[in-house]
Design a protein around this nucleic acid. Sequence first.
RNA 1: GGACAGGUGGCCGAGUGGUUAAAGGCAGCAGACUGUAAAUCUGCCCGCGCAAGCGUACGCUAGUUCGAAUCUAGCCCUGUCCA
Length: 409
Amino acid sequence: MTQYKSTLLRLLEERGYIHQLTDAEGLDKLASEGVVPGYIGFDPTAPSLHVGSMVQIMLLRRLQQAGHKPIVLMGGGTGKIGDPSFKDDARKLMTVDTIASNVASIRTVFERFLTFGDGPTDAVMVDNADWLDKLEYIPFLREVGQHFSVNRMLSFDSVKQRLDREQSLSFLEFNYMILQAYDFRELSERLGCRLQMGGSDQWGNIVNGIELTRRMDGKEVFGVTTPLLTTADGAKMGKTMNGAVWLNEDALPAYDFWQYWRNADDRDVGRFLRLFTDLPLDEIARLEALEGSEINAAKVVLANEVTKLVRGEDAARAAESTAAATFAGGGLGDDLPTLDVEGGEISIIDALIGLGFAGSRGEAKRLVAGGGARVDGVAVTNDSHAITLNGNEIRVSSGKKKHGVLRSR
RNA sequence: GGACAGGUGGCCGAGUGGUUAAAGGCAGCAGACUGUAAAUCUGCCCGCGCAAGCGUACGCUAGUUCGAAUCUAGCCCUGUCCA
């Protein structure tokens, strides 16, 4: 199992992407013989994907790096249903318009990770609404439905958990796994797709797709899942401070994105470097071996590399220099949130709200009362404090990490 | 259609007439310690207000009561079992 012949599996193995494989030997053989088209599905539940989806995106990138063809499947059709997997409650149904606009917005991110085009190993993007929307119920039941055993479906974790917890699972959601399986089969027909990848929670769906493809067409296809990514302290990746860590620029400023990686847990640095950057493994080994506070250097590299990939070179450089100026120098950087102040004076409360460090006046006051608010590095404990700018830029901070700039206008 | 159980703050979960803006936990924010790390300890954690206070809030609606998350009725939703 350890020694793969194919570049693909070796690459995935050594960088930590593999959790489960459906047929390691078969896939290894296939991948060493020629181009393997492989896909991963993404649900358009929001206008942007977040860091939690990044393993999958990187997986497609690795696929292309290893000389194969990545297929990005947008779940424009399945998104109308919602994955029941492990959710506590039924997802609210999204309107068709929302889905369409989410699909369009998510699309842009992939261009940074993959090379699209018409060549044999160029990436393509497809939307399962293209075929799912047109399905006719009776023909679909006859062709596809006959291959599914309800007994079996009930035994899948995604469904079982919902039932065990005595939570409702609508028939609509129950169908999700069938449609997902159908996607694989459809992609195998349309694009000769041989491989589906996904998070470990997708295992059941992937296996279903493989079986359906075999039963309907007698074709052999494969599946790979990635480990469920959590941070070292056990939290799901991609949810922090002010919510999710979005990939799209308009959903999260590059500086905040950079900071997310800069603040990674020590124990995660090596793993993240392998998964989310293209740095060579020996370089990563050197970085993750750094001890104590030296590891901070590795975190900067991590932040730079990931930001470069997701947001571009310029964004990464700007974020780094802002961070350096703000933290090391105690100064200001261009990327910090900025508030234009009229009239040369503003109350500390309004400044904190204006910079987005507090969501309400009460919250701002509590922050001040708790000693977390600083003006030019000096703690302010009086919530009626007024800041006078005198034409200068003033630095306002919430805690030690969140900094912003007041500028007079 | 019937019987039973249930719907509480971002989540989990106590609370069964006033002392309940609602125990506890998780998540989050801040402070101390540090390395913009982890762990630990401390404070905060519906909104407005300097405050007294006011406004909202316990599925929805209408009641009973001086007073309801707590009682009554109807409705909606969920689960389990029965038809």
